[in-house]
């Protein structure tokens, strides 16, 4: 790991130096072979370009496998989702996620709650903090906006206030909810082999609009999870479709080494 880090450091230094050198060459073109000290200082202080990667670096498609795995271990809610992401400057990753979520739970008191498969969407952007690195691993943070329109059936409830006789069953069917939320997330992505990546994201999810009806609060929100959670976790498998420009850029970076 230490060797790898040293290598990355050397690459970034070499790239930075080559950029400075190139710019300094252009700045000095047409001037005398022996620039004055003032000009030399100017050349040294010229800023590096904002992005050293091309604008379009490719696309990433991915699926979240955390929920399907947890469902195998008995979790009674969850979703199946995939996302499409565009890599801009290796720094900005606008993302669109689409998924289907559902839930079915019977509690100890025989309360039955069901959300049938419903679509949800998330749009937003991730930011790669290692954008200047030529490495294929990313440390990202992002902001997403999610929304879902869904319905729930709640059956077999009872009510006992401790004084009057208990009443049951109480049924509240076909409650339609529309929920909006934000996701503040961070995580890592590691290049496993070829263009395949694995990564996880931890998410803080404040609700913008819960979408409660006059008769119910939603318990499970597709794409968000249980209403009370506020936090989330995804584990993603991804495939990167690199652009030609990115391939060229990486080849030239390797050549410099």
């Amino acid at each position: 790991m230490r060797r790898l880090r040293t290598l990355r450091f050397i690459i970034s230094i070499v790239l930075s130096l080559s950029t400075f050198y190139g710019m300094a060459q252009r700045a000095d073109a047409g001037s005398s072979p022996h620039p004055s000290p003032a000009k030399r200082v100017m050349a040294d202080t010229i800023k590096a370009p904002k992005h050293n990667h091309p604008l379009y670096c490719g696309m990433m498609v991915g699926v979240n496998i955390a929920d399907p795995i947890l469902r195998l271990f008995g979790q009674d809610y969850g979703g199946y989702e995939g996302f499409l992401e565009v890599n801009l400057y290796n720094r900005f990753f606008p993302q669109w996620t689409i998924g289907v979520g559902s839930a079915k739970r019977t509690t100890d008191t025989n309360l039955f709650y069901e959300t049938k498969s419903s679509l949800y969407n998330r749009v937003g952007m991730n930011y790669n903090f290692r954008f200047n690195s030529t490495s294929n691993n990313y440390f990202v943070a992002g902001l997403m906006y999610g929304f879902s329109s869904y319905s729930a059936d709640i059956r077999n409830m009872s009510y006992d206030d401790g004084f009057w006789p208990e009443i049951s069953p109480i049924e509240i069917p076909k409650q339609k909810f529309v929920t909006h939320w934000l996701e503040l997330c961070f995580g890592i992505r590691v290049n496993v082999i070829g263009n395949f990546y694995m990564g996880w994201m931890v998410k803080y999810k404040p609700l913008l609009k819960e979408g409660s009806t006059d008769l119910a609060n939603p318990w499970y929100i597709p794409g968000y999870g249980p209403n009370s959670s506020g936090f989330g976790f995804t584990y993603d498998l991804m495939y990167q479709i690199p652009s030609r420009k990115l391939k060229k850029f990486r080849k030239s970076a390797e050549a410099i080494l």
Binding site: R105, T107, T109, Y113, I154, M157, S158, I172, A216, W219
Partner: peptide, 10 residues
């Protein structure tokens, strides 16, 4: 009737 939550019920 009002469904409060999965833990509290109705």
């Amino acid at each position: 009737d009002y469904f409060v939550s999965i833990d509290c019920g109705c």
